[in-house]
Structures are given as C-alpha cells and as structure tokens.
Computed example of a mutant assay.
Amino acid sequence: MNARPAPEFPKWPQYDDDERTGLVRALEQGQWWRMGGEEVDSFEREFADFHGAPHALAVTNGTHALELALQVMGVGPGTEVIVPAFTFISSSQAAQRIGAVAVPVDVDPDTYNIDVAAAAAAVTPRTRAIMPVHMAGLMADMDALGKLSADTGVPVLQDAAHAQGARWQGKRVGELGTVAAFSFQNGKLMTAGEGGAVLFPDSDLFEAAFLRHSCGRPRTDRHYLHQVSGTNMRLNEFSAAVLRAQLRRLPAQTALRDQRWALLSRLLGAVDGVVPQGGDVRADQNTHYMAMFRLPGIAEEDRNALVDRLVDAGLPAFAGFRAVYRTDAFWEVGAPDETLEQVAERCPNTEAISSDCVWLHHRVLLAAERDLELTAEIIADAVAAV
C-alpha cells in the first residue's frame, strides 16, 4: 500500500515585495523611530480605519497592549479584572503585572469564549474591567457583554489578539464602543515578528495611553517635562512598515480561511470522537486564527501524545491552552483569594477543554482543499490510534 502523501502548507509569515518596499521606505526616510518617522503614524490611521475605530495606538507587543489599555481604564492595585480561564496567559498577566487581581471565569464548551453568566457572577465593587478573548477569531457574545457592562458600570476590554478583521453582527471590532487590544506576534494573522495595537473609542483615552506608552512625555516636549509615569512601548518604524503590508493582505487571507474552515470543520466533524470549535451566527466574520477541535473524554496525557503524532505527520499542531490558574506563574502575584481547587471547581468547562483541545495553526487554512482532506485523514488515523 502506498503511503499517504504529506499535506503541503504555506509558510508563515508570508511576505513579498510589498514588505520589502516598506522596509526600504522606512530605511530611507532617515528617521527610524515613531516620533520622527511616518510609518507608525500611517499604520495607526490605516489600522483604525480598517476596524472602524476613531483611534489606534501601535505598541511593542500584544501583552503591552493589554497592560496599557487596562492602566488607562483605571486598573491597578486594589482592583480586579475578570478574564476567561481558557486563554493564553498574557490575558491574566497583563492585569497582574500592573498590580491588579486577575479573576478567571469559565468559558462556553462549544465556542471556548467567556461565559457571560460566569463573568456576571464574578463582578464585585473592585472590578474595573471585563476582558473577553475572541478565541481563535470567533467574537465573544458582545451583546450580552454590552448589557453586563451597562448594568454594572464595568467597562469591557476586548482581547482581540486573534481577531484582526473580525465582525459582530456587521460591526467591526472598533465599532463596538470599547477599547480593544491586538497582537502582531510572529504566529498571528498579521505580524511583524512582534508588535501590538490598541483601539480607543475616544480621544481622551487615546491621549492618556499615548503619554504612558512614551515615558509620560508629550509629543512636542523638548525639555524632558514628563507628565505621568510611563514606560517605553513605542513601536519602531520598520515593524510598522511591515504591518502596513500585512494589513493590505489580510482581507483576502481571511476570506480564504473562512472558506477552508467550512471544509475542514465538516471533515473533522465526521471523525468519531472529534468535535470542532462551534460558531455563532452573530459573529459574521470569524478570522480563524486557529483551527480548533476537542476530543471529549480524552486524558490530557493522551491528548499530548496525539499532538506529538500530528506534528510527526507534518501538521502544525498544538495542545490547547492550559487553564491560566493551572500555571505557577498565575499564583506568583495578583491571584484571587481562592485555592486552585476552588477556582477549578467553578470552571468545569475550562478544565475539560484544557485537557482535550487541539489546535492547528491558521496557515493550514490557507492550503489547498486536497491538503485539508489529507489533514483530516491524518487526524482521523491519530485519533483512532489513541
């Protein structure tokens, strides 16, 4: 019997002469930092326009984007931030690093997005922000979160690290009236290796964030009159030039990923024991940062061994995120006044998903249909061997 051919996937990151032109343009302008160049300013305008937001601020990375957003929203020592328990740990650490307590809450077992009822139950007088993560590019329930915010007075911060270009009922991320933070880390939907951005719904928040991201120094200051405590989160001109090219390529890639996920999710759903990530018809543009699926009932060690087999077969496969509270880092600083067991008890869906979830990098969804068929066959064989 002939061995099955290995699927072929596009390389990531992707680039062409558009990025090269941008890098040369940044090089030859003679000013390589944002206070003297034009690339960061241009990228901010283009990124804000693309998402329907009044303002965008480019920063050094997605974790800094969250930290900065939380800080200008009034988060700090003595306050709490509600975060989904199933997410990359930057979501919780961003709050913890600026002195706040991160309060993990459970997620939906189908979409993997924050459970709004669980978030509502976690609100206290100390809560200063509710941070949904648009998991794998599928937007969280922004209607319910908007109502919760209105009822409690607690603002929402969208962790949109996976969601460049996503929409909720026709509205882009920047049209939903909240602050939103993005990541441009190497694996993200658009990337400069590292980088981040924050969208702001009003100029006051934007100006406050600009000061803090630039060492508390006003744009026109010539005498070192730093107005507030800040740090250096400024994005450089070369990264911005690359991101401008990446943004122009994003819509076509998003459309292709959406088409390919329709095929792959159908193929995976036909595999015994495999349950693809669900959707929400109100999230009418899913960016598909990850192709995620669950193997309900599988032990974590068996899931991990399965991932190893998929990698050996040529798939860019990864284990699902570990629950944030099941890491030593979470308990170092800014943890709630609970035991690990108490947090786990109120997060049963997170407990399950963290043990049984697998994801494939989004470049899989840029491949040809035959390669997706081969991908599903490889996954079926690996699952059958568990």
Rank of each mutant, 00 (worst) to 15 (best):
E8S: 12
G174I: 05
E237W: 04
C357P: 00
P77F: 10
D41T: 13
R167N: 04
I114G: 02
D151S: 11
A208P: 03
A192Y: 03
R20S: 14
A335H: 13
P84I: 09
D272I: 03
V275M: 13
L250F: 01
A26D: 12
V24Q: 13
G273N: 11
S354Q: 07
F330K: 00
A150H: 03
D272A: 14
V123R: 05
L57H: 06
V228M: 05
F86K: 00
C357R: 01
I298P: 05
R249V: 04
Q253Y: 07
P54T: 05
P5L: 07
A53W: 01
G230I: 05
R128Y: 04
Y112F: 15
D17E: 14
L189E: 04
K171P: 02
F200H: 00
D371N: 14
S149F: 12
F47V: 01
A53S: 13
G52D: 08
E373N: 06
D16M: 04
G334A: 12
F321H: 15
Q71F: 02
V156K: 01
A94E: 06
G137F: 07
W331T: 10
F238M: 12
T231H: 07
W261D: 05
G137A: 06
A69R: 10
A208D: 13
H64Q: 12
G314V: 12
F50W: 08
D328F: 05
D151V: 07
D308I: 00
E301W: 05
A319K: 09
T87E: 12
